[in-house]
């Protein structure tokens, strides 16, 4: 099977937001970047499928030329090759444009299945997976917590507010991975050494202009200063009083 894990590098979840000078961006120069949390689970899904059904795993990303650290990490964990669709404006790319670029790439690669994270923890859209599937006319199951792959089809469980749904789907498909689906592996020393010899291609692509236009980026207003109402159980009456009369939430 031709298996693809679509991954993205994002600011660390511990990063603080700092505004860029133009009022329309964030200053990311001091931010640490890494593989998006759920994309690590997506890669694990791809590797897992290869190990059970055979095939080849490609780690695919849209990113800046030279942004290879995360892709080497994917290779070290077991991906057979990596492709970066090079784009100096990758951080501003909207979900529609991203989906169209990825869909075109998946088509040209002849992919059978694409694993993605449930959401990228920067723009938090959770949109690219189902959008790619729709542009390709593929099946898609989102927020997957359990997966069984058969021949040309599969069964997945997804978590919703009203309970766990069991979904049968046909291949090709996009699977977006939630926490709990797989425990991502760590790269071993042998993997890290081997990754240096695996192909990591930087590829230009035909641009799809953004529809989304950023008017402004601001920081949320700071919360008004709070107060400690007291210590221990003795403070409970003061808290109840504040919740009833000041905050009026009780």
């Amino acid at each position: 099977m031709n298996i693809v894990a679509c991954v993205k590098r994002v600011p660390s979840t511990e990063a603080l937001a700092v505004l860029g000078g133009d009022g329309k961006s964030l200053n990311t120069s001091d931010m640490l970047f890494g593989l998006s949390f759920y994309d690590d689970i997506a890669l694990e899904g791809a590797l897992n499928l290869k190990e059970s059904k055979g095939g080849e795993v490609t780690a695919l990303s849209i990113g800046s030329a030279g942004g290879t650290k995360e892709m080497r990490e994917c290779l070290a964990k077991g991906a057979d090759k990596a492709i970066i669709l090079t784009d100096e404006h990758w951080m501003e790319r909207d979900c529609r444009s991203t989906a169209k670029v990825l869909a075109a790439q998946l088509t040209s690669m002849g992919a059978d299945v694409a694993f993605m994270g449930r959401v990228a923890t920067d723009r938090d859209n959770a949109a690219v997976g189902p959008m790619v599937a729709t542009y390709l006319g593929w099946a898609c199951v989102t927020d997957v917590v359990e997966l069984e792959m058969g021949d040309g089809k599969g069964t997945a469980k997804r978590e919703t507010e009203h309970g766990v749904e069991t979904i049968e789907f046909s291949l090709p498909a996009v699977i977006t991975c939630d926490k709990g689906l797989y425990e991502p592996r760590k790269a071993g020393m042998k993997g890290v050494m081997g990754a240096k010899k695996k192909p990591l291609d930087e590829v230009a692509f035909e641009d799809v202009p953004n529809q989304a236009q950023i008017t402004s980026v601001t920081l949320p207003p700071p919360r008004p200063e709070g107060r400690i109402v007291g210590e221990g159980a003795a403070a409970v009456p003061a808290l109840i009083e504040a919740l009833q009369n000041e905050a009026q939430v009780l």
Binding site: P11, T13, A15, L16, A17, L19, L26, R96, T121, D122, R123, D124, P209, N210, Q211, A212, Q213, I214, T215, S216, V217, T218, L219, P220
Partner: peptide, 15 residues
């Protein structure tokens, strides 16, 4: 929100 609410973006669409 961006970054889970660490920043707020205002956006329009050309679509």
């Amino acid at each position: 929100p961006w970054l889970a609410g660490k920043a707020i973006a205002e956006l329009t669409t050309t679509g």
